[in-house]
Structure formats: C-alpha cells, structure tokens
Design a protein around this nucleic acid. Structure first.
Lengths: 221, 221
DNA sequence: GCATTCATTTGATCTAGATCAACATGCGAG
DNA sequence: CTCGCATGTTGATCTAGATCAAATGAATGC
C-alpha cells in the first residue's frame, strides 16, 4: 500500500534494476516502517520493487490464518514482478525499509521497444524459480534441524558471511518460512547453540554468530 | 539420457514451443519407455523438452534417498528449461512418453537474434514459478487431506475434468509430490472414498472418478 | 525509570503423520 | 493360465513436531 509510504526524489535506477530497464526508465524511492504492508495478495501489480536498504517478507495466507513465507528479500533484491495484473502474494517490511519503485507498465513498454535486456529479466524470474525449487525440497522432505541449518547458512550467504549476523525477522517469521512452529525453531536453535555450532549475542537473540559452518553444512543435506 | 531414446523425424515444432521459438527452429521427437530417465540432476542442460504424449515427473533427491517431486508434466507441457548449463533436477517418464526436443543453444541464438518472443519465454518460466509458489504453501502449511484434495483437483483440471481419470503416477509418486508417505496418501484417498467424494474404478486404483468436486474444493483451502 | 507489551525460551503433553508389518490385488512374463 | 513381483490397502505402534502453558528477557511508551 503506497499510502503508507513517503515519496522521495525521482531518479534513474541503478544496479540490477538498471540492468533490467536500461537508463531509459525512471523510478521513485519509498520508505516503509517496520511491519507495514508494501502490497497485498490480489492487489493490482502496478510496480516492481528493489530494496535499497532493509528487508521484506513475501508470503501467502490461507483463510484460517496459516501463513507460508516464500522468501525473505534483502538489499539489492527485486520482488513484486508478476505475470498477470494482480499480485499473487503479499509483501511487507520486516524492518524500516527503503525501496525503489518502477511502474510495471514502463518495463512492459521498454520490453516492447526492445530497451529491456530479456536475458536479465528471465534471469530474475529464474532465480526466484530456483529458490522455490530448493525450498520445496526443504518443505517437503527435510527435518526441523535440517531446515534451520539450511536457513542459517542461507542467511549467512546472503549477508556475506558476517562474523555477527543480525536477523531482520523474528522466530515466527522463520517458522512460517520453514513450515514449522516458532517453538520448534527456538528449540532447534537452542540445540545448535548447545552443540556449539552457533552462539547468541548476549543482548539480543536475533544477533548470532555461526561458530562452525562446516558442521552446519552437514545438517544442510 | 538420450541413450534410452529413439530418434524420430526432424520437423518444425508447433504449439507452445513454436510460440517460443517461431518457425525458425527445428527439433527432434524422442520416445521414452515407462520409468526411464530423461535427464539427471547435474547433467548438461542441452535440450528443452515438450511432451507430445505421456507424463513426466521432475524431482530432486537428497543423498539418503529422500525425494521431492517438483511437478508432474503432461501433454503440451514444457520442462527442462534452465538458467545455467546444468539441470538442477532430474526428469523421468511416468508412462511411455513422447517428447519434442529442441537444442537450448538454438533458443539462445534465437533470443540473440530477436526471433524468440520474450514474453512467451518469460510466461513459461513464470508459470513454473507460480506453480512452485502454490506448492510451497501446500508443503509448508496444508494437512494431508488438504494436500490430497488439492492434488486431485489439480489433476482433474489438467486432464480437462474427465468423468474417469487415469492417474499416470503411483502412490509413492503422489506422496513424494505432496511431502507425505504413500501410506498417508492411500489413507486420505480411502477417507475421501468413504465420504463419497470419489470412487475407484473396480479394476484399478489408478482410475478414479471425482463425485463431488465442490466438497473436494472445501478441503482445497 | 517504570510499566506494559511483545519476543523468546523451555517444559509438559498431545497428535498427525511416519514407520513397521501383514495382507490383498493386479499385472506382466512365461 | 498362473507364478511372481509390483502396487496398494489397512492395522498397530511410534515419534517428530505441534499444541498448550508458563516463565523470563527485551523493547517501547509514558
């Protein structure tokens, strides 16, 4: 919902989004506060988004409140690209998040005019597909400990192997991403902590250090 | 493995694959017997495939034998399209299956030469992505009965709502697609039979009729 | 800086689905 | 036709993870 965002300067896009659309398309910057919905399932897919800073969850819900988070998107990631006119899932900000927004129609125009690099556009969709395929294997066939180990290594990779990583999501988000309950995620993390594969920062349980990536990788079958 | 296939006539492709590559690219027809591998995870992604007749499963395996089937592909479906040089999953024929094969390189050439319709190519990948997103919700959050009901309605739709549908896959395949065991699938089907939502053909448990699609849809949340 | 609320951990118990086991049925090979 | 193996069903039991519950720790508002 753009209502919750504050418009910033209009400027040419760069990074991935520039590769996608060349220098010919302009976009806006918006900022979303923690927990705020960026778009909802079923809404018009007017824009494509790229994260400047912060983190976003995309997810689908069942009528009774069960939730499946498809993916966590971090700095540089693009999301919200749809085939049809409506979003097939919801997206909201996990923390204070800044995004670049480009009108879907301008990308479609650019495609028509051969301005867009097809290859990059397809690569973007294919990356999402590859992630989804990996995640189906996790959701269908991995144990809770394997899922949590896979998650930690995925985040470690995405955050460029920092010595201390600060997770932008809470235990419930992790659970809804991994197809578990928040209690099971918490227990799995405690087990990995007790086995000295990771340690928490004293102050907050969201800040943690991976102590043995090799041992974690053995859980990540 | 093309070793297991018999080459047939070279001819211009039609249907979806023609939309994708225009009239400029030619392809071969191959036939695979039931249970035969079409390609394996990690092999060179030399070809893209379209099913003329039959059915195919694409899947990934964990080292200890756990298997997750991504998708069942039926007549008209394309599969095997990869971003990189290697296949990220395996594919094999569920029943005697005939496929059209087109060299990946000729599609890439066609893309370079602007012969390919970008839109169709992206639509193809996006369709796969949408299916994967739906399936993540199923694998992460649905009960066994809901999974089986969803599966039956998916197959019913794919097979154009026949009065009697003949499933090309066995209970283990269904289980590995739905993230369950074959016993759980069998039990769920028995429950749906007992509740008169479906009935089996007397002779084979693979041939069944959906008696109450509306009631099934209530399980398919 | 204190209070209220939210996030997380940990423990006790429950249960959906897995596992183990036995039997039934159908199909292909000869 | 029938033997042997594949496939499928059903029952008994087990267990990983869910659910229920409580206590603690951390963040935020006043």
């Amino acid at each position: 919902m753009l209502v919750n965002a504050n418009a910033a300067a209009r400027q040419p896009i760069d990074g991935h989004l520039a590769d996608l659309a060349g220098e010919h398309v302009f976009c806006s910057e918006f900022k979303y506060r923690k927990g705020i919905e960026i778009f909802g399932e079923g809404e018009d897919a007017e824009y494509v988004y790229q994260i400047t800073s912060g983190a976003v969850r995309t997810y689908r819900m069942l009528p009774d409140g069960r939730r499946q988070i498809n993916a966590f998107h971090l700095q540089g990631d693009m999301f919200g690209f749809e085939n049809g006119v409506a979003h097939r899932f919801s997206a909201d900000a996990l923390v204070e998040t800044q995004v670049r927004i480009i009108k879907r129609s301008s990308i479609l125009d650019a495609m028509q005019n051969r301005v867009v690099s097809n290859k990059n556009l397809i690569c973007f969709v294919t990356q999402n597909l590859q992630h989804a395929e990996d995640h189906m294997l996790l959701l269908g066939r991995k144990s809770s400990l394997e899922r949590v180990a896979t998650f930690l290594l995925e985040m470690d990779e995405r955050l460029a192997h920092p010595s201390m990583m600060l997770l932008p999501m809470n235990r419930r988000d992790i659970a809804d991403y991994l197809g578990l309950t928040l209690e099971t995620v918490s227990r799995a993390l405690s087990i990995l902590r007790d086995e000295a594969l990771l340690r928490f920062d004293g102050n907050t349980q969201r800040r943690l250090e991976l102590l043995d990536r090799h041992a974690l990788a053995e859980f990540d079958v």
